[in-house]
């Protein structure tokens, strides 16, 4: 197990290095520089370049870049008055993390319930309804949901604030918009897993012991069906990150996603690269945790040593 984890961390570092090199390379290749403004003279550009260490040879810049990264230094933003990228990210991470977390928790709970109910009532109208909701959730982009909510609940009914950041009232619509995809994916996955487990012989054994229906469903079926759910955590986090870029824009939330989109429009490369790396690290760490977690909660893997292919 320890060897396996060490190997996985090795992969993580290689992947991150590749991403970092790629982002660095892109910065060199990209057309345009933040100092291409016509107002600046050649001398001024030179001074600025020197200030940002952009006049060093490229390999030296690369070493600086990677070295800085290891210290949590992702360079300085071109647009936000030269503030360090890491500062800006830390400053903005709160709202993004909050709605992301709320969406994951709410989406997972609702999704699990929907999936369990659909499986227990399979081939009834309840099942069909739950799965139709799931198809809608998977198909309809989160920004369409966000738009619908914003227009009807925010603009027309005025039940919730249309946008901006504040107390819990401000979280509801953006978190729900993000959660829709989570609900749909988890519900579908859980239904399949539940049906699979419910068809297993050990469920009959459990029933034959005289256990109550609730015991059979929760202790034997749901527990086992939930184990593979952790595998979709990785894609789910990417889904939330993707969604947050758009949702934060629509609801004007001062989070990382909103900042990222702004830095793309303004071609603020250090900011783009910093956020990109942050997203990559987040994703890699999540899939690493998922893999380890899977080994912990499934005794077949934990003690068997080998992994299920």
């Amino acid at each position: 197990m320890a060897r396996y984890i060490a190997g996985r961390i090795g992969y993580l570092i290689i992947t991150l290095f590749i991403i970092a090199s790629f982002t660095f390379l892109l910065m060199q290749l990209l057309p345009g520089s933040p100092f291409n403004s016509e107002k600046l003279t050649a001398d001024q550009i030179q001074i600025l370049k020197h200030e940002y260490n952009l006049d060093d040879p490229i390999p030296i810049q690369f070493i600086h870049y990677i070295g800085g990264m290891l210290h949590g230094d992702f360079g300085v933003s071109f647009t936000y008055d030269g503030r360090p990228v890491s500062d800006l990210i830390v400053h903005r991470i709160g709202p993004s993390a909050t709605i992301g977390f709320e969406a994951v928790v709410f989406g997972t709970i609702v999704g699990l319930l929907l999936g369990i109910i659909a499986a227990l009532k399979r081939n009834t109208y309840i099942d069909y309804l739950a799965m139709f909701i799931a198809v809608l959730g998977i198909s309809i982009p989160s920004f369409v949901f966000a738009g619908l909510l914003q227009y009807y609940i925010g603009v027309k009914l005025e039940w919730l604030p249309i946008a901006f950041w504040g107390g819990f009232k401000f979280h509801i619509m953006p978190a729900f918009s993000l959660a829709v995809g989570v609900i749909a994916n988890i519900a579908r996955f859980m239904r399949t897993e539940m049906l699979d487990v419910l068809g297993q012989d050990y469920i009959v054994t459990a029933t034959a012991k005289g256990l109550s229906k609730a015991s059979v469903i929760f202790k034997h079926s749901v527990r086992n069906a939930m184990i593979p759910i952790v595998t979709i955590l990785g894609p789910m986090v990417v889904g939330i990150m993707t969604g947050s870029l758009v949702i934060e824009q629509i609801f004007a939330i001062p989070g990382i996603g909103d900042q990222f989109v702004n830095s793309i429009t303004k071609r603020d490369y250090p900011m783009i690269m910093g956020t990109t790396l942050l997203f990559s690290i987040l994703f890699l760490v999540v899939i690493l945790i998922v893999d380890i977690l899977y080994g912990v909660i499934d005794p077949r893997i934990r003690l068997g040593g080998g992994r299920k292919s």
């Binding site: 012989d201 050990y202 054994t205 034959a208 012991k209 086992n224 499934d298």
Partner: peptide, 18 residues
Amino acid sequence: GNEISMIFQDPMTSLNPT
């Protein structure tokens, strides 16, 4: 499971693996 019990055909699948 109390008055009447049952054993099944395939012991490989009739126990809860977790």
